[in-house]
Design a protein around this nucleic acid. Structure first.
Lengths: 134, 134
DNA sequence: TTGTATGCAAAGCGTTTGCAGTGAT
DNA sequence: ATCACTGCAAACGCTTTGCATACAA
């Protein structure tokens, strides 16, 4: 059965207190302030477990490693800042996009990512290519 | 300077002849029919070079490794089949999405991925979670 | 001939897993 | 006292890089 460990609490709290989806490493950094000896493997194991329990949900953006946020936010999208690279929730949706697909293709779902400048990063910068880092 | 090797031609051809974005491994498989001894490192090096030359462009989908297609397709989106996992181009776009972002956020670009059944994979299947594979 | 491109193998990076020890119940 | 959980290190999958050789020019 599920046990309540200091590690698990620290990991859950780190994500609950964040105002945006966090990378596993960011979760580790935050949770280590509560539990200094915490290891990255434990973070990954708990993230996976918490997702399976339905408490967290993964946030996958194009070319980015998975981030994690509290579940419960229903269908929504994300915004990534081209300056600070951080990701924010967007609680809006363009709606039905089924007519965009070619004939014969059946649309069941969609993912949308907006890019630009977040509230904290004022002026526009030259667009940079977004890519997966190994 | 750029040299014209059999390997580079085979790699370029593999992508040019495909009707969809290919994974590096798929490029390798296809190109090895022309150049049997071809190595995966050469594929990666040429993909990177061809992207920098502007001949190819990377296709990044949420939780997926990068695929590659010919450049020149201007702004467009992609469709991933939930059954066969393959990716197809979508030459349509919902248009201006800047009003979806929260106040203070400046939208400069967007990525959209549609999910469902491709032309070849008829009936709908239970949705499966899309995730990054290490 | 010259030096870029290739193939192989090793290294990197993020993520997962094996294992013995730790600690919640 | 159990047995799930943890930390560490090794293993993994994909991508990149070092190096000696091969080959386009």
């Amino acid at each position: 059965m599920e046990r309540n460990t200091r590690q698990r609490s620290a990991i859950r709290d780190a994500i609950a207190l964040a105002d945006r989806p966090l990378l596993p490493q960011e979760v580790l950094d935050a949770a280590q302030q509560d539990v200094p000896g915490l290891g990255i493997a434990t973070v990954y194991r708990n993230l996976k477990a918490l997702v399976e329990e339905g408490e967290l949900q993964p946030v996958n953006l194009p070319g980015e490693n998975a981030r994690f946020e509290l579940a419960g936010h229903q269908h929504h999208h994300h915004f990534q800042c081209l300056h600070c690279q951080r990701v924010f929730d967007v609680h809006a949706c363009p709606g039905d996009l089924s007519k965009l697909a070619p004939p014969g293709f059946l649309v069941e779902d969609h993912d949308l990512t907006l890019y630009g400048r977040c509230k904290g990063c004022a002026a526009p910068a030259p667009k940079k290519t977004r890519r997966k880092v190994a």
